[in-house]
Design a binder for these strands. Structure first.
Lengths: 340, 340
DNA sequence: CCCACGTCCCAAAGCGCTTTGGACGAAAAT
DNA sequence: ATTTTCGTCCAAAGCGCTTTGGGACGTGGG
């Protein structure tokens, strides 16, 4: 049979109170007793029942991560890296991660359920839209959360985002510096905040040079090879064709690459490309041929940090004080160069 | 304040017992009372405290999915599809999914903790090796589990696997039928059961035609673009070079594809390839150019089914009765044809 | 010598639910 | 008319932990 606190206490001829306190490091128990207790617990393989602790304390030791099923069609590979990052940090504190796979339409009820049934202490949200309703919902439900990304919602909340606007501004400016004038942008899903920010950075960079953006060179869609291919292909049919591409993800970049090649062009010579790289271990920009110039920001590192922020939030830090914008590196490699 | 069972009972002027039974569908409460209770619960937004239920019943309503951090470097994209599949089924039953990201070295303690602290009712394991120690561990801990894949461990346990051996046997045989004689195999991590099965299928097909396998044409490694590229590149340097490739994953296939091209060869004409496709929504074999011939099996569907099997296991079905081998389709497209 | 004050420990009351073992009438059976 | 059965409902005892509110036993200062 599994050993409970009561058994352990009986074994030690101490009260449950004392054993509990000894194990949880309260001061009102002598050091020698504590050592005895801890040693016995280890020896007898005592493991507190997590559910009893949860009930007694009201704390759960778990955070929920919303995994939008539909969106995960776009964010599959991102999601797993992100999760790993969060997990890496929270595992250190023995905090569980509850993934809540949800359809777009039952997102609200699932969050309600999570909150009301006290399954988690906090929630991590990602892939927000500017008017994301989840922010209001969770605030109302009094459920602490950290958002990966940003919204325009006017309710104080904790978030961490990367500087998407800055990244694409720099990438675009760099291509302009090289002499490119027709720069295509294959963005992520148009409703997402990060995609909006990226477009903003791109447009702003063009405007600063007095260039008028060509709407035919701007496309949006999911982060798939296929979307990249289709958009790039039709853009390369234009006359004059774009001499450079910005790609929203490495998946997109693969598609663009294919389109460039199948148009008989050579990446890095005839056409340039800078792609955004969330740093997947299985898709290395450096090892591509030609190696890919990227705006780089590890989504895994962001996850790790978000784990940290969740802990801070739960420790009582004000959500107003939890805002981080991470700079994005521009890594130049062979895929970007001057126009022919 | 949040509504508890006691409040709801007081509100209805009923006992907690009756309210609880009404809500949980026990027979000893009249239909009219039940309706009253259910209606009031809905109206007042009553949500039972999950932790109290867990403590009282001993059931948790959660299953753990081991997410090996290190291995997830190989299985990142697979993992997220697989998780989605499991989640899709279990969400229907309001069962939570706990992901336990773990380093290879603390795998054992994490499982012990999960089991002893009653955080989950069951566990899903994936990516086993033939002598996987987790099978024995979980059996010992009396923790129900379903394995995705197979081991050679001689302990009864529930599993679901795809017919890796058959798939690669067929793919190899098909290439042989087309006239290929030098067929290279770029496999997954050598220690994994599925990779061993695939190699077996491949070797067996060669032997059936009286061919001696060339060890230089067999490689193993993680499922990355890079690994695919490296191995394929060095194999294409051989003389005579392989005329066909088998790739363990779509990621690998992308790398092989690059190597073929950078050797100045054309896929589907000079060199053939059949890749294994776990069906990622963001990497579509049909949309590649040329479209990719594959051995196809949806890892998401497998996840969904495993969710189902977990439920059966928890409902009392014997683990000895839970064994499934799924056939794998061979889908021929443009990347495979006769040798030049 | 007494009292205040630490120090170390304990009994018991929760946490919010399920479940056991009846109670109480009314209807059916004897 | 009395006993059985049945349909409804309830009080109270857990589930395994934390935490409150003391109690007992030295120790040192007045």
């Amino acid at each position: 049979m599994v050993m409970r606190l009561k058994d352990l206490a009986r074994e030690l001829e101490l009260s449950q109170t004392t054993v509990s306190r000894a194990l949880n490091g309260y001061p009102e128990v002598s050091e020698v007793t504590r050592r005895r207790v801890v040693e016995a617990a280890r020896r007898l393989g005592y493991r507190p029942n997590a559910n009893a602790i949860r009930l007694a304390t009201g704390r759960v030791g778990a955070v929920g991560v919303a995994l939008p099923l539909e969106r995960s069609l776009h964010f599959g590979p991102h999601m797993s890296e992100f999760l790993s990052g969060i997990g890496e940090r929270l595992a250190e504190e023995e905090i569980d991660i509850l993934v809540a796979p949800l359809d777009a339409d039952d997102e609200i009820p699932v969050h309600r359920r999570m909150a009301a049934s006290r399954r988690v202490d906090a929630v991590v949200l990602s892939a927000p839209t500017p008017d994301d309703p989840r922010v209001e919902l969770l605030t109302e439900l009094d459920m602490p959360f950290v958002l990966h990304g940003r919204t325009a919602v006017d309710i104080p909340h904790a978030w961490l985002d990367i500087d998407n606007e800055g990244a694409f501004h720099r990438a675009t400016s760099h291509l302009l510096d090289l002499g490119h004038r027709r720069i295509a942008m294959i963005n992520g899903p148009a409703e997402q905040t990060f995609a909006i920010h990226r477009e903003k950075g791109y447009l702003e960079a063009l405007r600063e040079r007095g260039l008028t953006p060509d709407p035919r060179l701007i496309a949006a869609g999911r982060f798939t090879d296929e979307i990249g291919f289709r958009h790039a292909q039709s853009m390369l049919d234009l006359n004059p064709r774009p001499t450079a591409f910005l790609a929203g993800s490495m998946m997109t970049a693969l598609g663009v690459f294919r389109a460039i090649r199948s148009a008989g062009l050579q990446l890095g010579r005839d056409v340039s490309m800078i792609a955004h790289d969330d740093v997947f271990p299985y898709l290395n920009a450096d090892n591509m041929v030609p190696s890919m110039s990227t705006t780089r920001s590890s989504i895994r590192a962001a996850g790790f940090r978000i784990g940290e922020l969740v802990l801070q939030l739960l420790a009582g830090k004000a959500k107003e004080a939890i805002h981080e914008v991470w700079p994005v590196e521009l890594v130049l490699r062979e895929s970007s160069g001057p126009p022919p």
